[in-house]
Nucleic acid binder design. Sequence first.
DNA 1: GAGTGGTCTAGACCACTGT
DNA 2: CAGTGGTCTAGACCACTCC
Lengths: 262, 262
Amino acid sequence: MAVSYERIAGELRTAIRAGRLRPGDRLPAETELAERFGRSVPTVREALRALRDEGLIEKRHGIGTFVRRERALARRTNLRHQWEKDRSRRPVAQRAMTGATEHDTGLTANDLVFWARYREIPAGGDISAVLGVREGAALLERSYRTRHATESAPFGLVTSYLVRGMIARNPDLLDETKEPWPGGTQSQLHSVGIELDRIEERVTARPPMPEEAEELELPPGTSVLVLRKISYATDGRVVDVTDVVLPGDRTELLFTTPLERW
Amino acid sequence: MAVSYERIAGELRTAIRAGRLRPGDRLPAETELAERFGRSVPTVREALRALRDEGLIEKRHGIGTFVRRERALARRTNLRHQWEKDRSRRPVAQRAMTGATEHDTGLTANDLVFWARYREIPAGGDISAVLGVREGAALLERSYRTRHATESAPFGLVTSYLVRGMIARNPDLLDETKEPWPGGTQSQLHSVGIELDRIEERVTARPPMPEEAEELELPPGTSVLVLRKISYATDGRVVDVTDVVLPGDRTELLFTTPLERW
DNA sequence: GAGTGGTCTAGACCACTGT
DNA sequence: CAGTGGTCTAGACCACTCC
């Protein structure tokens, strides 16, 4: 290879893939690598940065550079939607026991810390187009965070948009102190007579924005999954748009598509 | 901010988000930015690297640094699976007209260039576990690339694994020169009497490996979507595992979940 | 040829961590 | 305290692109 930082990165990459360097292992210090490869420290740092950008290593200031471990996956399945719909007609006491996050993760409510914030905002940009309302229409913006009780980073950054006029019949739906609502958004919509017909989820991936990296505690060299969930009522209206940002290295989205039998 | 490259990155980021720098605009040269901010060129380069890692800018050697434009999205929907199943019993002539990629993208077969390579390999690692066969069992590994006729990068990197013993009844299925098979994998399985019951798709995101970045022509500062598709036959067996690597910045996965009516 | 970003040197000093 | 990575300087020369 013409470029010497690529040669250094290549040798280390090969060692990691071959298992000569195992997850959790510490790499030699930058000064030592520089000496060993006969290059300057900045050149070695360039090589390490390339490996970090591939998600292979992780640097810890003042400690060293380590081969990255696989993260435990949090799973989110689309079966949750039917499950939530079924629950939304059940008694409150039964709904209160567990929510969709518990359904997906297998955890109980005691393991989880929940947080919600409501704001009323005018519809703008693509949200108004998706919801089919005019620009400036009154929306309810709901931000959610759920995290494991023993960790500081949430599972994801969730923002949901509802049309205020559709739900104002039930004032409790405008009150964030009523969260967590037993049974989730489908139960809330049910309380104002809205039944869902289907849910669309659009998924893309990109590097995190700095604010997202901070809140999700993402190390450099990771990606986020960006999911937009669109809920359609039985009358065809879009009744909810939810944007979710999830850490790509510790989230697995599972979609099951049943097929009609012959 | 304590760190001056962060201050430089912050000012440029704000300018981009506010629209003072628009997609496609060229940023000042590194030497000019260095002078303007009163820092050295390497410090400016550090700031630009941070913005590139966020996907905000794109550097072109010998030309300059530009605000990145949004990419045109290629969409892939899970409705394709039922569509493919319906087609797999239709006459060959009808199946030959369009495939799933055409279904998703709205393009015609003339717009697309298709490529396939078959290999027989022993089952290893997680693939044998998912397919439910012993390690070392004979598998057919099929690699696919589809690209737009006017572009050089494929839509994605597709590798499918079939159990050789399940499909050997039809020797055509072992022959890569028979590709593209009219109607796709479900038609191939149908030719040996296999009907699918459901499809599971698992989605995660991560930075690309160097080989993936090269083949998909991904600039630094992008992510890939990693999709594993698992096909279940009506008898409960896993009959196909397909791994797909897609460019995160120009792919949208669309999943529709229908809900039972009350 | 002029201008751009890419690679590299050989240091300096700072900030963080564990002992 | 010693050792680590983080930031920064002030250059040098190379590779690429456009004119």
